[in-house]
Design a protein around this nucleic acid. Structure first.
Lengths: 167, 167
DNA sequence: TGCAATTGGTAACAGATGTTACTATTGCCG
DNA sequence: CGGCAATAGTAACATCTGTTACCAATTGCA
């Protein structure tokens, strides 16, 4: 909505320039996709300070660890859906985690393509070290908002996600 | 998961585990940094559908183009600050844009380290083609929100940005 | 049953990105 | 002045990431 204001009293439109030629201004600082990208990147790097710097995990590996810690053994295929990672990212993340003995994979007799994955003891210990730190940091960030804003953010993110997905 | 339910019949707290040892649960789907990352990534890819697919610009190049289109000639150094890009990203983005004759650089007599950058005619034409598309897409996404939510999002993003920056 | 299409997974390459270190220029302070 | 520190910018390398193509296993259907 091209910032057009209703005029009181009279339906006289602004014809100083034909609407079709007037270029709207894009202020990068106010452009939602830009702001979201910058914010998400900053938050992401902040959290990576926990799992990457201190525990040498990639972002994908951390997501996989988080899902396995939360849900226990599951098929590799489902990991992708829950953690929003494509199959290549899953493959690489699991390779990374397996090399460090944080997860183990076992074949399913029912479908030998699909292997199920589970945290090892070492993996669970790492998970239990990271989670409190991550949650604490999340709380610190959310402390900048009022309770209403936290609730609104929840709703807004969900709505935007739906909007962009059905593009 | 370990979600606890209030017990009917009496304010007897659940002391099955001491609070200090109970591991809080991190549900990835509700974890703010994760949700933000997924949303920003989806929005980013959506907008990239405009500047990348149709006009073959990288994300950095697009940001630089946007800033130059909005503010006119400026020092390369300042581009980074405004567009949230580091100096290497600026260097690469400008190389990309210059190779396509979308920007031109000129030396300043006052400081030969620092060159000023400006859109060429071709660059401005491209800018003016992309901007309406980007703004339209932004509006379509924001249409999923109420006016109050749009306003709240603005405030919330600013607050979170401040919170994470002073980490 | 048997063959085409689908699915899970990985290898291999190409391209993008982050990091370190280097050059060139300028500012600062003795 | 002289030279050390700071700044703008880039090259070169290592890493990460996306893409394509491919294999193996399974499913579906003629």
């Amino acid at each position: 909505m091209s910032r057009r204001y209703a005029r009181a009293g009279g339906g006289i439109a602004d014809h100083s320039q034909p609407a079709s030629r007037r270029l709207e201004v894009l202020e990068l600082q106010r452009f939602l996709p830009y702001r979201l990208a910058v914010l998400a990147d900053a938050v992401s790097k902040d959290i990576a300070g926990i799992y990457a710097e201190r525990f040498d995990l990639t972002r994908q590996a951390w997501r996989i660890l988080a899902v396995l810690g939360e849900r226990g053994k599951m098929a590799a295929r489902d990991l992708g859906r829950v953690a929003t990672l494509d199959k290549m990212q899953i493959s690489r993340g699991l390779a990374h985690l397996e090399a460090r003995a944080l997860v183990s994979r076992e074949e399913l007799a029912t479908d030998r393509r699909n292997r199920s994955v589970v945290l090892t003891r070492k993996g669970r210990e790492l998970y239990e070290k990271i989670v409190p730190l991550a949650l604490t940091r999340e709380r610190e960030l959310l402390a900048a908002l009022t309770a209403n804003e936290v609730e609104a953010l929840d709703r807004i993110v969900a709505k935007l996600m739906r909007a962009v997905r059905q593009a």
